[in-house]
Structures are given as C-alpha cells and as structure tokens.
C-alpha cells in the first residue's frame, strides 16, 4: 500500500511565528507557494499561513464583485492596507487548525482528508512532529492515476 513518503515533496521551506508578513509574501512569491508551513525554532509544525488570509485582511471586497472603475481604487486601497500590516507577525495571521499528516500515512487516507478539508496542500511531519515536506492535490491525482493503471492491468 502506497504511503505519503513515496509521493511527497521533501522541502523544509517554512516561516516562523515571529517572522513578518512582508518576508512571508516574498517567500510565497519566490517559492511559488500560496500557503506556507509555520514552525517553531526546532522545526516543529505549528500551523499554516495562507496568502488568501492575508488578502482577506487587506481587500474589503473580492475583486470579482467590483466594477472596473472601482478596481483601481480598491487595489490602491489594498496596497495601503498591506503597507500598514506588512510589519506584523505571522502569529497574528496564521491558522493553527490545519492538520498535518505523517510520512507513513496511507495515500488513500490522505485523499479522504483533502476532500473533507478542501485543502490543496497538506504538510507532512515525522514521528516527532518535525516538518518534512508537503503533499498536494496533484500528488493525490498522480497516485490515483497509478492505482487506476494497476486496476486496468489486473
């Protein structure tokens, strides 16, 4: 039975609770990740910080509901809001409710968790709770593709 270990991305890109939002945004941009794990000084997983949570805090309404004339005003407004909060700490904006999965967890279990939580990424920890990487929806789909292929062969 396939485990997370086989499909996960092994990366320790992370931020700490006392990092500031400006740095988090830069890491998100450069790593092309819209959600980052938050860890303590010993690399223990504490939660996650989402780009959408930062956006929610700086944009009063979703862009989709704005007319084009208002859009420019709202973007400027958002930039001003971001300027106000960019020095704030991750701890104020992180989510501690996100669950992590284990390297040894079975892949079918991960599929269930992802569907239940609507998470696009789940962070992976070892037996001591230290961050080890993440597994994404694409990894789940790739796993399911392999399962389907096996069934076809059988």
């Amino acid at each position: 039975m396939s485990t997370v270990k086989k499909y996960m991305m092994r990366t320790l890109v992370s931020v700490c609770e006392d990092d500031i939002l400006e740095d988090v945004i830069k890491v998100m941009y450069k790593s092309e990740m819209s959600v980052l794990p938050v860890v303590d000084s010993e690399n223990k997983f504490l939660g996650t910080i989402y780009s959408k949570n930062i956006l929610k805090n700086i944009i009063p309404e979703k862009f989709g509901f704005l007319d084009s004339k208002q859009l420019l005003y709202e973007i400027n407004h958002a930039a001003e809001n971001l300027s106000d909060i960019k020095g704030r700490k991750v701890s104020e904006y992180m989510s501690t409710k996100t669950m992590a999965v284990s390297e040894e967890d079975k892949m079918y279990k991960i599929a269930d968790i992802m569907l239940d939580n609507k998470e696009s990424i789940l962070f992976v920890v070892n037996e001591r709770g230290n961050l080890r990487g993440y597994i994404s929806r694409a990894d789940i789909l790739y796993y399911l593709l392999a399962v389907a292929k096996e069934e076809e062969t059988d």
Partner: peptide, 12 residues
C-alpha cells in the same frame, strides 16, 4: 527532489 533529498533552500 528526484533523488528524494529533503531540500531546505532559501530562494533568492
């Protein structure tokens, strides 16, 4: 990552 190495990179 293809070698299953854990990467811990600072992106510049």
């Amino acid at each position: 990552q293809e070698y299953k190495i854990t990467t811990n990179y600072v992106y510049t």
